[in-house]
Simulated assay, not measured.
Amino acid sequence: MTRRLAWAQLEPAAYQAMVELDRFSATRLDPLLFELVKMRASYLNNCAFCLDMHVHDALKLGESTQRLVVVAAWQEAPHLFTEREQAALALTDAATRLGEHGVPDEVWARAAEQYEEKELIHLLMAIVTINAWNRIAVSTRAVVAPRG
């Protein structure tokens, strides 16, 4: 697969705007939760580039290989994730797959039980931002560089 557009080099201001959105949430959420949300959305959006990046970022933070693998099917292994993480992952799923009915009330209520209102804003911004990154990477065919 060939990259379609070197968007960040052609329009650095657009790239910087995305970086600033990312930085907003990164500085306000637990770093491991931030990476789990990014991985889950990237998995749902079939964004190999972002998935590769955030798996490696999470490993550097000390995340376990088991949780990195299982986040793709987190609902089948709830014992591996805290209640807060489960609520964040459920919100990530719903906000990423909006569909015609949006985020269900029960998903929002679950997140609202686990996070204060400002934390919900930070979480939602992280979800929105990784979805934007995914759409850019998939649309432009960002290439996953081989590792190792």
Rank of each mutant, 00 (worst) to 15 (best):
A14N: 14
V19R: 08
T65N: 07
V37P: 02
L10P: 06
S64W: 00
A109K: 07
A90N: 10
A26Y: 11
V144E: 09
G102A: 09
L29W: 05
E119P: 00
L21R: 15
E106K: 13
P78W: 00
D22G: 14
V55W: 02
Q75K: 08
E11S: 05
A77N: 14
L10M: 12
R135D: 03
A73R: 12
A72R: 11
T2R: 15
I127L: 02
L44A: 10
H79W: 14
A26V: 02
L89Y: 01
W7R: 01
N46G: 15
L36R: 01
A41G: 07
S42H: 01
L32G: 01
D52Y: 02
V128E: 10
A94G: 06
N46Q: 15
T2K: 15
V103G: 06
Q75N: 09
A142Y: 06
R28M: 08
G148I: 01
H101A: 12
A94M: 07
Q66L: 15
P104I: 05
V55I: 15
A6I: 13
L120W: 04
C50F: 00
L21P: 02
Q114F: 09
M125Y: 10
C50Y: 01
C50H: 01
A26W: 04
V70C: 06
E85D: 10
A142H: 01
A95E: 05
M1V: 14
H101T: 15
T82Y: 00
H56P: 00
S25D: 08
T129R: 00
R141Q: 14
A48I: 07
N46A: 13
A109W: 03
R67W: 02
K118F: 06
E116K: 14
E117V: 10
L21W: 07
L29M: 03
V69T: 12
W108A: 10
V19A: 11
E116N: 07
V103M: 05
Q114K: 13
T140L: 03
